[in-house]
Nucleic acid binder design. Structure first.
Length: 114
DNA sequence: GTGATGACGCAGT
DNA sequence: GACTGCGCCATCA
């Protein structure tokens, strides 16, 4: 849940909170977060993380990928391979910029409330 | 105020 | 199963 709402609540702040709640070794998707926050558009999630400037604020943006399990946002990281490096460091197998067994480690924000 | 862009998703082919 | 086109909503020029 969002225990520390910002003084200026914005949807991207919510995206950060949800992203931070992604369990270690698990990954989520833009669509899942957009659906959970009822943003209406998965693009808003990607845009929100873009504003975050990727890591640096404790937001594990590398755990968020597109619906196909591809590291579509890796180019926005400090280095194109950083996203894969971080995922592999968590035990996530990445092959050709795509997450292996994606549906096995897929995590939906709804799970953190159950 | 209008047009274009974007870390995407889904329906149709 | 893979590719294409359209739609989503907010921000920037």
């Amino acid at each position: 849940m969002f225990t520390d709402p910002p003084s200026s609540p914005s949807y991207y702040e919510l995206v950060y909170e949800v992203t931070k709640n992604i369990p270690f070794g698990r990954v989520s998707t833009y669509g899942a977060i957009a659906d959970y926050l009822a943003l209406g558009s998965a693009r808003m999630v990607g845009w929100a993380l873009h504003q975050c400037g990727n890591l640096g604020d404790g937001v594990p943006a590398h755990r968020v990928v597109n619906r196909k399990g591809e590291l579509s946002g890796r180019v926005h990281f400090r280095t194109p391979t950083l996203m894969q490096e971080l995922l592999e460091a968590e035990g996530v197998v990445v092959v050709d910029d795509k997450i292996k067994d994606f549906k096995e480690i897929y995590w939906h924000p709804q799970e953190m409330e159950e």
